[in-house]
């Protein structure tokens, strides 16, 4: 299958020609397969947000190209515009971009900008609201009257309503409590399952990435340094640590147990896996939770 999104030797330098000149991306070759669930991890300043904004043409590359479905997204103004609707981008703290009088109208902002008719907009708003678990009563409220987690979900629905073929989310769970986090991740998985769109999750939470995605890309210093399945990435604990990234806490515990001489597999990164492995090792009842 050919990738839906692809970048070729993508390079970006901020404030070119001033003393604040700073290279954010250095020759990034990156791709997203149709319908995949991909995670991007990186330390603050590793270039992941910059990469993300290139993928729907918000920033123009200093060098290199971005291809959507095989066409250069900067080919013409129309191409860029149409790509914006097909590559949905959810920024960090998206709830700060809500502005309409009602949640309904805010979610409808994207579809309306796409030039869709009233009936189609209505279908999409209700569909997106259902995906993030917002009720019909909440749709008629002011977005500023919602709770923090609900605001965040309303803002994400605003992008989902455009029915993008690739949905990119930057730290969608930042600053939420564990329950709010689980809800958002649940919504994103539901969107992925029901629409078959590709989802790119940008995060620095290893637990979240490990639990959610099927492929992981690690960024550091404006470059892609690792690319593979969660298992293969988290097995390289020492390298990740050197980049200022921590492997999931459970994995760290398992590693410590291994150094103590307890024979456990080194590719464990969820609590459930750890429990299973420890129980198997202990030869006990594997049904116990």
């Amino acid at each position: 299958m050919s990738p839906i999104l692809q970048t070729k030797t993508l390079t970006h330098t901020y404030s070119l020609g001033t003393p604040f000149e700073q290279a954010a991306l250095r020759g990034v070759d990156f791709h997203v397969e149709p319908g995949e669930l991909l995670g991007i991890i990186g330390h603050t300043g590793s270039g992941k947000s910059t990469l993300m904004q290139h993928l729907n043409g918000l920033i123009k590359p200093t060098e290199g190209q971005v291809y959507f479905d095989g066409t250069d997204i900067h080919e013409s103004k129309e191409t860029t515009r149409s790509v914006r609707a097909q590559v949905g981008l959810v920024f960090q703290y998206p709830e700060y971009q809500l502005f309409e009088e009602t949640v309904y109208r805010d979610i409808a902002f994207g579809p309306k900008n796409m030039g869709l008719g009233g009936a189609e907009v209505d279908i999409r708003v209700r569909e997106a609201a259902a995906l993030v678990g917002l009720t019909t009563e909440q749709l008629d409220k002011s977005p500023f009257a919602l709770s923090g987690g609900q605001k965040r979900r309303a803002a994400i629905a605003g992008v989902m309503a455009m029915r993008p073929r690739v949905l990119i989310l930057d730290e969608p769970t930042a600053g939420l409590d564990p329950r709010g986090r689980d809800e958002i991740i649940g919504n994103i998985k539901a969107f992925h399952r029901e629409t078959g769109a590709a989802v790119v999750l940008v995060s620095h939470s290893m637990e979240e990435i490990a639990r959610t995605v099927s492929r992981v890309v690690v960024m550091s210093g404006g470059q892609i340094v690792m690319n593979g399945t969660g298992r293969s990435i988290f097995a390289q604990g020492a390298e990740l640590h050197a980049m200022g990234l921590a492997v999931p806490e459970v994995t760290q515990i398992v590693m410590r147990l291994r150094t103590l001489g307890i024979d456990l597999p080194c590719d464990i990164f969820t609590v459930e896996q750890a429990a299973q492995a420890i129980l198997t090792r202990a030869g006990g009842d594997t049904d116990a939770s």
Binding site: N56, Q97, F109
Partner: peptide
Amino acid sequence: SAQKARGAD
């Protein structure tokens, strides 16, 4: 940027 991503012009 965020509003542009939602198609604002």
